[in-house]
Design a protein around this nucleic acid. Structure first.
Lengths: 210, 210
DNA sequence: CCATTTTTCTAACAAGAATTAGATTATAGC
DNA sequence: GCTATAATCTAATTCTTGTTAGAAAAATGG
């Protein structure tokens, strides 16, 4: 039976069962596989093999292939959301609106390119996955998008953003520029930080000389 | 046998065989299916059914599922390339560099959102498709990207673009902002032209007030 | 109309991969 | 060490889907 019954009963901290650990390993492996080979292209046997297990064993931890991919996506979304909120919360209250947006851009890109396979997986898989999963995950996507909407709205209200552009188009364009990097980014080239800087400069200041 | 042997011998104009027509219909249906459901998610039976055919019949026109998807992607890429070159060629020689970029943005987006399912398919499938297909199609992608690189380089050389940003990052950010629209665009909302205008404004002029 | 060719369908086959049940091994508490 | 439970494996099963061969239908040209 489980030890540390205090933690589990209170629901705080991770259970010390080995299962909880392997569950994490499975999610990590699945995130990489699904992201790299697409939803239908990633085989359970490969995912299991990449962490020294057999395909059948995965079913001890997840009910089905679909449950696995949904868990990966939910996890990725949660991480992105948490990282962004953490970063914004760390800014001092006198941080100007444009600097907040820049921080959000850098945080998003860092998370996607560097920190979490499940974040990029949740982005790339959203249109590959069965409709019922997509619908549930999209709810989370909207919650994440709402943070960006708020950022943009506040900036505009403060007079820092031009007022003639559709805010939702703007938001999607920014996220598109960032998310697309998942596909072309190669560890050898420009660093995530540099990419984030350049995109932020383009988005906020524009490419044209003044 | 075929009539119009002159045309076919000379390789000009479409053959008048019915097969050529259905081949087009198959490509259209496949483009939609692959784009909407991903490479491995789209079934031949569905593609065939969507144009009133049976799965087996597709093999009269294409050697395999892979040959079909490659044909879709090659076609989409060719259309995007042709549309962009046509548009740029139509500009007068005194068109300023920034206006050229704006025209390219609008052309790309219009093609992706409105004119051709195969264009969006070729974009979305590139990382889902088997490696050998990807390699061949990527050559075409590079040729298309080269047009953009040229546009940006010329604009910078003319002093119209700020010189402190990585041009390849810039190019990918622009294309990312545009391509992402495939995923969120809904016919009900902002028009492709309006979206193109807003993105061009953001990319060139920036979101910040001056 | 007939003969030939083109195009599509039917029905079975084959291969791959998810899933499951039961056996087997590891782990934790006593 | 022993026992109960947790965790993993083995091997068979089922399901899905691409593929194919041959029959049927449609079109074409005379």
């Amino acid at each position: 039976m489980a030890s540390s019954s205090v933690d589990t009963v209170l629901g705080i901290g991770p259970t010390d069962r080995k299962a909880e650990l392997t569950r994490e390993r499975i999610l990590d492996a699945a995130a990489r596989a699904f992201r790299d080979r697409g939803y239908a292209g990633a085989r359970l046997a490969d995912i299991a093999a990449s962490i020294g297990m057999k395909a059948g064993s995965l079913y001890y931890h997840f009910d089905s292939r679909e449950a696995l991919v949904e868990a990966v996506m939910v996890r990725g979304l949660g991480r992105a959301h948490a990282a962004l909120e953490r970063r914004l919360a760390a800014l001092t209250s006198d941080t100007p609106p444009l600097a907040r947006i820049e921080a959000a851009i850098e945080t998003h890109l860092t998370e996607v390119l560097h920190d979490s396979d499940s974040v990029s997986a949740s982005i790339k898989l959203i249109w590959q996955v069965p409709a019922d999963i997509r619908d549930r995950v999209l709810a989370g996507h909207r919650a994440y998008g709402a943070i960006w909407t708020r950022l943009l709205r506040e900036a505009r209200a403060a007079g820092a953003l031009r007022a003639d552009l559709d805010l939702s188009v703007t938001r999607m364009a920014i996220l598109g520029a960032l998310n697309w990097a998942v596909d072309w980014y190669k560890p050898g080239g420009a660093s995530p930080r540099r990419i984030a800087r350049d995109i932020a400069q383009m988005v906020l200041g524009g490419l044209a000389t003044r």
